Amino acid sequence: MTSITIYHNPRCGTSRNTLALIRNSGVEPEVIEYLKSPPRRETLVALIAATGHPVINAVRSKEALFTELNLGAPGVTDEQLIDAMAQHPILINRPIVVTPLGTRLCRPSEAVLDILPQRQQGAFSKEDGEVVIGANGQRAQGTDRPTSKP
């Protein structure tokens, strides 16, 4: 059985779409509602490192608390950003998905397709109606990345 974990916020449409895409591949992931069960600082550091992107990408810069804490000021370090996310999980950008093929911040939700070990099992449209996966289980026309391999 494939092991997939999603750090999920059920109030976020992107997170809900990502979770639905994982399930559309035939896998029921471990769902961690990170606002209820925040990752420990060490886990957060490991997740961010595994994405291969800068720490700032993992921070929700549009969150009011980001501004209140002055996290966008010159000289704010990665350590300070991580400390803020550990203390205030609302600042963690989501969803973060971990699969055997990698770890991604899945914004947009289709980014999860690149790290899913199994193909999509059927058509899929986002909550807003945008078609992502056609009836044949392949990415809809107009996308430039292939679906993950079986």
Score class of each variant (00 low, 15 high):
Ile48Thr: 07
Pro108Leu: 02
Glu110Thr: 04
Ile90Trp: 02
Ala111Glu: 12
Leu91Gly: 08
Val59Phe: 03
Ala123Ser: 15
Arg23His: 06
Glu28Arg: 06
Ala140Phe: 00
Ile56Val: 14
Glu130Gly: 05
Cys106Asn: 07
Leu69Asn: 12
Lys36Tyr: 01
Asn136Thr: 15
Glu33Thr: 10
Glu33Gln: 03
Ser109Trp: 04
Met1Phe: 02
Arg104Pro: 00
Pro10Phe: 03
Val45Gln: 10
Ile115Leu: 10
Val45Leu: 14
Gly102Asn: 08
Phe66Asn: 15
Lys149Ala: 15
Leu71His: 13
Leu116Glu: 11
Asn9Glu: 00
Thr99Met: 06
Pro100His: 09
Thr67Cys: 05
Cys12Val: 10
Pro74Lys: 13
Ala46Ile: 02
Arg104Ser: 06
Ile56Asp: 14
Pro54Asp: 14
Pro95Asp: 12
Arg119His: 12
Thr2Gln: 07
Leu105Val: 02
Asn93Met: 02
Ile22Gly: 09
Gly72Cys: 06
Ile48Asn: 10
Ala73Lys: 15
Ala73Phe: 02
Val112Glu: 11
Gly129Val: 13
Gln138Cys: 11
Pro10Leu: 06
Gly137Trp: 00
Gln138Glu: 15
Phe124Cys: 12
Leu71Thr: 10
Thr18Lys: 07
Asp128Thr: 08
Ala111Leu: 07
Phe66His: 09
Ile6Gly: 04
Ala73Asn: 08
Glu127Met: 15
Ser15Arg: 08
Gly122Glu: 09
Val45Ser: 04
Met85Asp: 12
Glu79Cys: 00
Ile56Leu: 09
His8Tyr: 05
His53Pro: 04
His8Ser: 08
Gly142Asn: 10
